[in-house]
Design a protein around this nucleic acid. Structure first.
Length: 1051
RNA sequence: GGGCGCGUAGCUCAGCGGUAGAGCACUACGUUGACAUCGUAGUGGUCACAGGUUCGAUCCCUGUCGCGCCCACCA
């Protein structure tokens, strides 16, 4: 059956992929012929994800490495899987519920909601896997992993043990003191109502305003305010009864705890330590706050005085913490002004006691609500408006004079207005929710990253040092980052690392394995009478303690409730005997716990049976940051904490291929966590690739509408073309601008290799069985192409070893198209008619096989198809043996030189013909004017090829005929007699141009060789090379000059 | 404000001490034993600018000018 004219990717690709899967071709260990392993962990796409260009790029590169190693016989594992993506997934499922008019998350409750998420996952969560298959990704799907597998509530089929790994790590790090809980200022997403990490915040510049307000000094006190210029000259001196404060967020004034000025600021030295009044809120309850000093305020900015709102600003939080300034939370979880707690008057009175020196109880962050009654429940923007109006109305806004021209009268008017500067401010937004993020003082869990960052830094420092020294060893236990520049990003972030907030107020995720109980340890529980029963007083005291337990909660961090029971036994050892026999029972929350305890104590009093006592605990409702679990991807996917054979075999993994955008999120955290947990680096090399942009260099985004969907491209051009394009453009560390033209070009390349095969097939190249081994033909052409093949094999191996994917792709392209198709196939045509037909067929069959083999990692589909079509094969191309022949053994320098001469001669003839306007169809006679014996030999060996490709009908030896074109090449001068056809002047111009160009080059070479310093200092091989070039060039120039001279005779 | 990078043919980019390459685009020609998703030939570059190091610089160093990206707490 004759081959089609082009490869039908749409038909063939799914068929070929299915065949690979049927054979189990991607299963780790399949067909491995050597003991070494090669492992890549896929960066797990989100379950909610669908394949975008970034994935296509990332996975193409991984697949190339994987397929290359697999063919080389490594026991190869490409571990696939998906990330549960806490926020993103919860968001998607909630949206689905809303769309289908189902009850919302909170209405259906946690368990039911999680059921919905799992349901969604099983229905829609596999889309990206199918898409990766279309790309040709050769992952071991039998091992597909999920970061939530094995979690409570997971349905059948999701029973891996990733959850166990995550929980175990949390418990261990907690035990080591590397995870702690604390009330800290965190980034709060008011839409999702959860904390997020620094990395999930994008800071964007927006239009904002800066207001300037007067905070009056307490009791109407005054001071002399003096401003000086840089030279110390007084520029302003006035008596003031206020301190001027600037703010972009007036609503936060309600939570101010102090005003700070710089330690060295002389302007305010006289009022430091005094009190000033926050100019907002009910007049009769204005709060007074102290004026303090700190290093933070910048005396050159604004008035130099800063209001300190510890609960709503990261800088202020630092100042407040350092100086013991109370922090008052003003907003609720939706970032509306708080509506809970006692009325404002009461709260303000308490705040004033604190300002006057009463101790601030940390719990008061949550219990004191300093939002004035009329602002409670308002959106923060509404509250801001009210605050500004109120202050302005009272005349406490700083004013300035503005002159303007009255439109009607045309007069110039000067008026005094409140000073409101319009300015660009940086505002934080949630990267998922896109809403404004609020700094919020809440209880969260943190990883003490400073304590575990050391090994992660050391490992890469060593890896980079080795890389630079050229002594990099994959087995040495360190990690290098390529390109080197990205290591700087890694270092910079890790060296300045902040504690990592890992708790999220979400439901979809790994629930934090921590249980709280009532703190019954100290005075709260006391059996005053010692009668073993609790009377009402004793009970009341206990419950009262329970109700107040903000701080004294007893915690147990353990994998499950059973382990919790054991921990509690320890922690309640000093509790009176009856209670220590209590059973531990999990309840939903704290109020329920108090009720349960009361009931069980009553029961105990009646029964006096210690086993009637119930000790209630409740689990932390928060879940872990998704990146906490994906940070364990390398060991978690291999079965850790179980000592599985896979873990032993495939860990540490080899290479991580990832985008630079998740160096912080993921790479750094994997390094830290794997080192902290199993004390090994997770991979020896991190290959960081750039971003795929549109053809104009813009980031692809839905809102810009410039997104290229890889699946559309695969439909249009085939997966191989898309892969080859991405590979050819993968210059290390540089963003790539993708255009359809480029892909079409590489699609043409697939067609080219297809048609070279088609040609071979039509000429009986595959008719005979392939002999074993590498052919050993006699003809120069065949010997030459074998050498070229050996060269490209070496180039591809070197390029892939160095992760220079584009070099590999370009070398293949240049070889297949530029050498095999352009020359070898053309040379073969006449050879098929001659005595070398057999050896040429054998050589061509071998060469094409090498093309399939070498191209397969980049273009797996078409090569597999051609492999199958062109012979009876022992195994599929996926598992065929990667060529290992050396270049030197297959290179024939004489054949090389000869073919270069032939090619150059043909090119010169073609060029001359085209320039002289000789019709392509016209065959010309050629005259050999003079030649060295080598040139004569080269001619005679290759005569049929030259005649054919240069379109010459015969060669005769004669003196230079009149009116002919000169072809000067190494060792020979030829002529194309074109009397009457050629224009002597044109030929003269052609030759003159050629000789001038040559002369220019030759002069350069001569000058260099004439420079004694060059001869003295340059490398000997460079000098030799230069001399050789000069000699060759001189010879050629001489021939052209001779031709010119002859032309002159004619002319 | 810090950090990182980039300015090479009309476009997109390789190259990074020995005198400049690819693809696309463009021009002319073309029914050549596979391929028009093709072939042949060609046009096109003070390698941003200015200094320095060197026998020699697109490549290394310094500065300038343009352009990106990342990080950052100026109220």
């Amino acid at each position: 059956m004759p081959m089609e004219k082009t490869f039908n990717a749409a038909e063939a690709e799914p068929r070929l992929y299915a065949a690979w899967e049927r054979e189990g071709a991607f299963v780790a260990g399949a067909n491995a012929s050597r003991p070494e392993t090669f492992t890549i962990m896929i960066p797990p796409p989100n379950v909610t994800g669908s394949l975008h260009m970034g994935h296509a790029f990332n996975n193409t590169l991984q697949d190339i490495l994987v397929r290359w190693h697999r063919m080389r016989g490594f026991d190869t594992l490409w571990q696939p899987g998906q990330d549960h993506a806490g926020i993103a997934t919860q968001m998607v499922v909630e949206r689905e519920l809303a769309k289908s008019q189902q009850p919302g998350r909170r209405d259906m409750g946690r368990e039911a909601f999680l059921g919905k998420v799992w349901e969604w996952k099983s229905q829609s969560g596999n889309r990206i896997i199918e898409q990766l298959k279309r790309l040709g990704a050769s992952c071991d799907w039998s091992r597909n992993a999920f970061t939530m597998s094995g979690a409570p509530g997971a349905p059948a089929g999701e029973d891996g043990n990733f959850h166990d790994a995550v929980i175990k790590v949390f418990v261990e790090l907690y035990a080591k003191g590397l995870i702690y809980r604390g009330k800290r200022l965190v980034n709060w997403d008011p839409h999702f109502e959860t904390a997020i990490s620094d990395l999930e915040v994008e800071n964007l510049e927006v239009d904002g305003h800066m207001w300037h307000f007067k905070y009056p000094l307490a009791g109407g006190e005054t001071y002399e305010y003096v401003e000086k210029d840089a030279d110390g000259n007084v520029t302003l001196r006035e008596t003031r009864d206020y301190i001027s404060i600037a703010t972009t967020r007036p609503e936060t004034m309600l939570g101010d705890g102090a005003v700070a000025v710089h330690t060295s600021d002389e302007r305010y030295a006289s009022i430091v330590g005094k009190l000033c009044e926050i100019p907002v809120g009910p007049k009769e309850h204005r709060r007074l706050i102290p004026i303090i000093t700190d290093e933070y305020p910048d005396p050159t900015f604004g008035s130099g005085a800063v209001k300190i709102t510890g609960a709503h600003d990261f800088n202020d939080y630092g100042v407040a913490s350092r100086n013991g300034i109370p922090m008052y939370r003003l907003m609720d979880t939706k970032a509306a002004m708080r509506a809970d707690g006692a009325p404002y008057a009461e709260a303000a009175a308490r705040a004033q006691e604190i300002a006057n020196g009463a101790a601030f109880d940390g719990a008061e962050v949550d219990t004191l609500n300093l939002v004035p009654d009329e602002m409670r429940g308002l959106d923060r923007m509404e509250a801001r408006k009210l605050v500004v109006e109120q202050i302005t109305a009272e005349g406490l806004a700083v004013t300035h004079a503005v002159t303007r021209t009255d439109k009607e009268t045309g007069e110039t008017v000067t008026e005094t207005v409140a000073l409101v500067e319009s300015k660009k401010i940086m505002q934080p937004f949630g990267d998922r929710s896109k809403v404004v993020i609020e700094p919020m003082l809440t209880d969260q869990w943190f990883v003490d990253t400073q304590k575990i960052v050391g090994p992660a830094l050391d490992a890469v420092r060593q890896g980079m040092a080795a890389q630079e020294a050229g002594t990099f060893d994959p087995a040495a236990g360190y990690t290098r980052i390529l390109p080197e520049r990205d290591a700087k990003t890694y270092f910079h972030w890790l060296e300045n690392i902040e504690p990592w907030c890992i708790s999220r107020q979400l439901w979809w995720g790994h629930q934090i394995p921590v249980w709280y109980g009532l703190d019954l340890g100290d005075a709260a529980f006391r059996d005053d009478e010692g009668d073993g029963a609790l009377d009402e007083v004793e009970l009341g005291r206990l419950l009262n303690a329970g109700g107040m337990l903000h701080r004294g909660e007893v915690m147990a961090c353990a994998a499950d409730l059973e382990s919790v029971t054991e921990r509690f036994r320890d922690s309640i050892a000093d509790i009176p005997a009856p209670l220590s026999h209590a059973r531990i029972v999990e309840v939903a929350d704290k109020p329920a716990a108090i009720t349960a305890l009361a009931a069980s104590l009553a029961e105990y009093n009646v029964s006096q049976d210690p086993t009637a006592l119930v000790f209630p605990v409740w689990r932390d409702p928060d879940v872990l940051d998704t990146w906490f679990s994906s940070g364990l991807w390398p060991i978690g996917t291999l079965g850790w904490p179980e000592p599985t054979p896979e873990l032993r075999k495939y860990f540490p993994t080899d290479v991580l291929v990832t985008g630079f955008d998740i160096i912080f999120f993921w790479v750094a955290r994997m390094m830290m966590m794997q080192l902290a947990v199993v004390d090994q680096v997770p991979f020896h090399t991190v290959y960081v690739h750039a971003l795929v942009r549109d053809e104009k260099g813009k980031k692809m985004s839905k809102s810009l509408g410039n997104v290229l969907d890889p699946l559309d491209l695969i439909d249009d051009y085939g997966a191989d073309a898309v892969r080859f394009t991405l590979t050819a453009m993968a210059a290390m560390g540089r963003d790539l601008k993708l255009s359809k033209d480029r892909i079409a070009g590489y699609r043409n390349f697939t067609t080219k290799i297809w048609n070279a095969t088609r040609f071979a097939e039509m000429n009986g190249v595959f008719a005979a069985a392939r002999p074993e081994g590498i052919p050993q033909p006699a003809h120069t052409v065949n010997r030459w192409i074998i050498g070229e093949t050996a060269r490209v094999r070496e180039t591809v191996d070197e390029a892939l070893t160095a992760y220079r994917f584009n070099d590999a792709a370009n070398a293949l392209y240049a070889f297949v198209w530029g050498k095999v198709c352009d020359w070898y196939v053309e040379f073969a045509k006449p050879l098929f008619d001659g005595p070398e037909a057999d050896e040429t067929r054998a050589t061509m069959a071998w060469v094409l096989d090498q093309c399939y083999l070498l191209c397969h990692p980049v273009m797996p589909f078409i090569t597999e198809e051609l492999w199958a079509m062109t012979g009876t094969r022992e195994k599929s191309l996926v598992h065929a043996d990667w060529p290992t022949y050396g270049t030197a053994a297959l290179l024939d320098p004489a054949a090389d030189r000869e073919m270069n001469w032939v090619i150059s001669l043909i090119e010169q003839v073609r060029s001359a013909r085209a320039e002289m306007g000789v019709p392509v169809g016209l065959k010309l006679p050629m005259v050999l004017v003079e030649a060295t014996p080598e040139a004569r030999a080269a001619w005679s060996t290759n005569e049929p090829l030259i005649l054919r490709l240069a379109r010459i009908d015969s060669l005769t030896e004669a003196a230079m005929p009149k009116g002919s074109i000169t072809i000067a090449c190494e060792g020979a001068t030829f002529a194309l007699p074109l009397e009457g056809v050629i224009d002597v002047a044109a030929e003269k111009a052609r030759l003159t141009k050629a000789v001038e160009k040559l002369d220019k080059d030759l002069n350069g070479l001569r000058n260099r060789l004439g420079n004694p310093k060059f001869v003295a200092n340059a490398a000997p091989e460079v000098i030799d090379e230069t001399r050789e070039k000069l000699a060759q060039g001189d010879e050629e120039a001489a021939r052209i000059r001779a031709a010119l001279a002859r032309l002159a005779d004619i002319g």
